[in-house]
Structure formats: C-alpha cells, structure tokens
Amino acid sequence: MSARAVVGVALAACVVASLLGGILGGLLRVGMALPSTADAAWLGRGALAHAALVMCGFLGTVIGVERAVAAKRPTAWLAPLASGLAGVALLAGHGALGGGLLLAAASLFVAVNVLLWKRQAAPHTALLLASAVAWWIGNLLFAIGAEGTAVLPWWFAFLVMTIAAERLEMTRLMRRRPGAQASLVAILASLAAGAAWSAFSTAAGGVVFGAALLALAGWLFAFDIARRTVRAEGLSRYMAVCLLGGYAWLAVGGLAWAATALGLPARDAALHALGLGFIVSMMMGHAPVILPAIARVKLLFGGFFYVPLAALHASLLLRLGAGFANFPWRAQGALLNALAIALFALTAAGAAIAWRRRHGGRISRTSA
C-alpha cells in the first residue's frame, strides 16, 4: 500500500471515529440510553468532548482534506492528519494531547490557506484565510482550557465563514447590487467581534454574535444563487433546497443565540439550529460535488437524496419545537437527528455503488 493510501485510510478512520464518538456522546448528553455501550469509557469522553469531536475532529478534518487537495502539497495533509488524530486522542482520554494536536492542526491549516491566498488573491480566499484564523483562535482557547462560551463562538465562526466563502466563490459571477460584498464583510467582522467579546461578556458578545448570524442569513437569502437555482431541476434544485433550508435554520440559530445570551433557555436551539440545521444541510447539499473533488467518489443523484434531508429537518422541528420545553421530546428529536445523518451516509454510499455499476467504475473529471 502506498504512503498516500495509508494516509487516506488513517484519515477516514479518524473521521469516522470522531463522528461516531461525537454523535453517540451527544445522545448520551440528552439522556438517551445506549445499552450496548453504556459502560464504555470512550462514550463518556465522547459526551464530554462532543463539540470538539464533531466540529474539529470531524468537520475540521474534512475541510482540511478539501484544502489539502486544493493546495497540491504533501505537507498540506499534515493539518487534517493532526485534527483527525486529535479526535482519537480525545476519545482515548488524552485531553492535553488532543488540544495540542488541534492547535497544531489549526496552525498548519492557516499556513495552507496563506499559500492558497497567495496563489489566488480573491475575496473568497481571503475569507477562507479568516476562517482558518478563527479556528486557530478557538483551538488555542480550547487547548488552554477556556470555557465553552469562549471557544464555541470561534469554532462556529470558522464553519460559518467557510460556508460563506464557498458561497461567495460559487456566486462570484453573479451581478450583485452595489455594496453587497462590503455588507458581507461587515457582517462577518461583526461575527468575529461577537466571538471575541464572548470571552469577556457572554451576554454582550452573544447578542452581537447572534445578530451577525441573523444578518448573514438575510444576506444569503438576498444574494445567493440558490434562490434562482431552486427553480431548476435535478441536482441543482436539490442543492438549492438544502441551502435555502439551511439559511432558514441559520436565522433561527442567530435568534436563539442572542436569546440564550439574554438568559432565555434556548442554548440547545442555538447550537443545533446552527450545527445541524445550517451546517449539516450545507454538507448534504454539497456532498455530490465535494466527494468527486476530494475523494474521487461519484454519486448517482436521484430523488432519494431528499429523504434524509427531509428527515433531518423534521427531526430538528421535533427537537427544537416540541422539545423546547419537553426534555423527552428533545431526546427523541436528537435520536432522529442521528438517524437522519446515518440515513444520509447510507444514501451516499448507495449512490456511489449505483454510479459505479452504471459507469463501470470510470471516474469522470467533471464534478456532479
């Protein structure tokens, strides 16, 4: 087996471990009984490190792989390898090592994004670099043991800025009204300011952060190409539905984040409207395009992709609606969230097998 294949297998194992540990740990946090693993020490660690596993060990590694593919430098793979190993370290109970690896991963990731920005000095690459810096700040705070109220805004800023940059790149050829790009910069600067302020004042920083998320949702609804492509057919319409649904949850997340900062019991809604409703919706929408680009895995698109998407949104409505004041309903919604993600993974795997059967294993050079 080649060195590249070994790294690929190691990264895949780390990503699966972080995602599985994060999801099962999250279910444990909402009181779900998991009989087969109830006494497993790693599961308890997964509950404690739920956010770090999902946002850094899983998403940070996947984004790092995407950026390493774009950089076309062997050393660029060190960033996702470090974040992937960090997830394993956290599950193994080595918290200090996990924090150090996440800081190293973010430092390498910033260097990769500097390289990409130098190659193409454009608004979206500058924004990607800013998102990398946000991740570095969040990982630094995590490594030194800062409170979650200081760390989480930076981790969410990293993911939200990454998505905003990708949407900016996708729509760069659209004609926008004057001031659209400047308003986006102002919104994301407010997001960073709210994240920084949260370390000193949870209330003031949280209100600014939540308002910035709400403003970003409005900006995306107004200027993103999805509001046009939703009238198309096939994959273009599916992606647009994922995006527009995600933007609605982004608005909910912004309102809930500000409400939580003001003392209302909306923390679960703030975290999971963003983490599941917005970010996972984006992942579902982009998977048919991203997988061919970074893993050379083509997916045969069909209407069945709407099933896990609908399941995700329905389970979120249960969790954040009926479950807002009813903890058992919230737990059931969380379980259905996990099942929706599992269903999407099975759907993607089935679509990959279907594509290979139809095309005889040939890999096209064009994206889906």
Rank of each mutant, 00 (worst) to 15 (best):
V7H: 09
V7N: 11
A12N: 03
L20E: 07
G22R: 00
I23W: 07
L28E: 12
L28I: 07
P35E: 08
W42T: 13
G46W: 09
L48C: 06
G57P: 11
G57W: 07
G64V: 01
R67D: 04
A68V: 05
V69S: 03
A76M: 07
P80A: 09
L81Q: 02
A82Q: 10
G84P: 07
G87M: 09
L90C: 10
L91W: 11
L97E: 00
S107D: 08
N113G: 04
V114F: 09
K118H: 13
K118L: 15
A126F: 02
L129P: 07
A130P: 00
W135N: 10
L140D: 04
L141D: 13
F142T: 08
A146E: 15
E147G: 14
E147Q: 15
V151A: 02
W155H: 08
V160F: 12
A165G: 04
E169R: 03
M170H: 12
R175L: 10
R175D: 04
R177A: 15
P178Y: 00
P178G: 04
A182N: 01
I187S: 02
A195P: 01
A199K: 06
G210F: 05
L213G: 04
A215T: 08
A217R: 09
L220I: 00
A232Y: 12
L235H: 13
S236D: 12
S236Q: 12
A240M: 02
C242W: 06
A248Q: 03
L250V: 08
L250E: 03
G253K: 06
G253L: 06
A256K: 00
A259Q: 11
G263C: 03
R267W: 15
A269I: 15
A270I: 11
H272I: 03
H272M: 01
S281F: 01
M284Y: 06
A287C: 04
A287T: 10
V297C: 13
F301V: 08
G302W: 00
F304S: 08
F304A: 13
A310F: 11
L312K: 09
H313W: 15
H313F: 07
A314C: 05
L317N: 06
G321D: 05
G321M: 11
G321N: 12
A325Y: 13
F327T: 15
P328E: 10
Q332K: 11
Q332T: 14
N337M: 07
A338Y: 04
A338M: 05
L339K: 00
A340T: 05
I341E: 03
L346I: 02
A352I: 11
W355I: 02
R356P: 05
H359C: 09
H359Y: 14
R362F: 13
I363R: 15
A368L: 12
